[in-house]
Amino acid sequence: MTDQPLLLSGAAFWKSFRRNRIALAGLIMLALALFAAVFAPVIAPYDPAASVEITIDSIYARPSAAHLLGTDDAGKDVLSNFIYGSRVSLTVGIFASFISIVIGGTLGIVAGYLGGRTERVIMRFTDIMLVIPDLPLTVVIVAITKPRLLNIILVIGLIGWTTTARLVRAQTLSIKERKFVLRARSIGAGHFHILRRHIFPLVLPLLVVNSVLIISLAILNESTLSFLGLSDPTVVSWGQMLNYAFERGAMSSRAWWVLVTPGFGIVWLVLGFTLLGHGLEQVLNPRTEWHHLTDHPLMVSLPAFPETHP
């Protein structure tokens, strides 16, 4: 354990990252999504905010040359809504997870490093928060505080830090006992100095992997809230598209394009982050992944067996 290198150098990291097909696939998926979100006004054929004249034909219109992915219950272009929808998911995912990571990371490091009563109080509180089901709590708070984008980000962020706190605490505990930290303490280095110079750099890789997974959870939570009817009405989001479609007859109109498209977007983003996170974990924390029952047909690989053998 102790003689294993603790941190990968940038070059070594990039070398094994490039080889990891899972991480690379995730990164490419995310890059495409980010591109769509940033350049939405350029890519999208229509402006979702512009009003449309509603006729019988414009509602739930099948995909056509004018509307590549058809139209929704309000006659709006599904493809354009789809492209703009990535903005909400990415915004909420990134900002909410940032809040969660800062809270969880701070609590975890402080609890693990200081120990004693501080640790007990923090971890007891974390345990309680861990047991309370996230989504119902989020729904209740957002329902009461009104679903503005800022509220949604704050609530998701303020609730989703528990797993981070536990992971970071465990990591801090193990780092705290390492020789160089003990040495720094024995020569009288201050707590802040030790935390910043010795502990934080070693917690960072874990935080990065964890934040990627927290982002994907935040995106799923946001889309679920929107689907349940708790979306910011001033912006288009994928969950909201599904909510409108589901509540306003897309099922009976068999308008599959309104039902499939937004969900595809959510899966794309969440899968991108999940793949990236899984790959990063493999790169930063490689496991041998063999065990005592692994098939080993080549154990005896003798080119020319001695003549003694019948």
Binding site: W290, H292, T294, H296, L298, M299, V300, S301, L302, P303, F305, P306, T308, H309, P310
Partner: peptide
Amino acid sequence: PPQGRIVNGSVQFNGRELLA
């Protein structure tokens, strides 16, 4: 373990070749 390979030799138990 899976990385291990017996690449040469013989192991006989009571005259029986275990590697075979």
